[in-house]
Amino acid sequence: MESLSNKRKVIESKPLNFWERIYLPAILHGLSITMKHFLFKKDVTVRYPEQKREFSENFRGMHSLKRDEDGRERCTACGLCALSCPAEAITMISAERQPGEENLYREEKYAAVYEINMLRCIFCGLCEEACPKEAIYLDGDIVPADYLRKDFIYGKDKLVEAPLNQ
């Protein structure tokens, strides 16, 4: 019967001939192949911490809380990012801006505490999409390894962008 895919192959198993039975030619052939790799092939390893591959353009890494053009924090602690987060990784405590802090915070309300649990975060980017103030972007590097669970809860000290140089 004709097979449906026409890919059927009849395999004959012939008895091994003399040279195949004494193994040695096949072993020598194998040895020559591995020796070729030993001598001529370059390794393909990326030596990771020293040598890094380029990220793709839409790579989502560590979050950063942005500042505006005057160096003020954009976040108003509206909580939309926390609401949108499917992994519930984001928590924040809001505070009211005091007079004299206008150069620090853009709106009257700001996040006094802003924490992301990097072990919960799935780097989906929904916080980035939810943010009405363009305050959070996942444009950082890979989140580094650490020893303790509590060290993976990143506060504002790690998340907020460095202040502008005046």
């Binding site: 790799h37 390893t45 030596r47």
Partner: peptide, 13 residues
């Protein structure tokens, strides 16, 4: 190290 070289890797470094 040799295993690594035979398999186009780097080995312990």
């Amino acid at each position: 190290k040799l295993a690594a070289f035979f398999q186009d890797r780097v080995g312990p470094n």
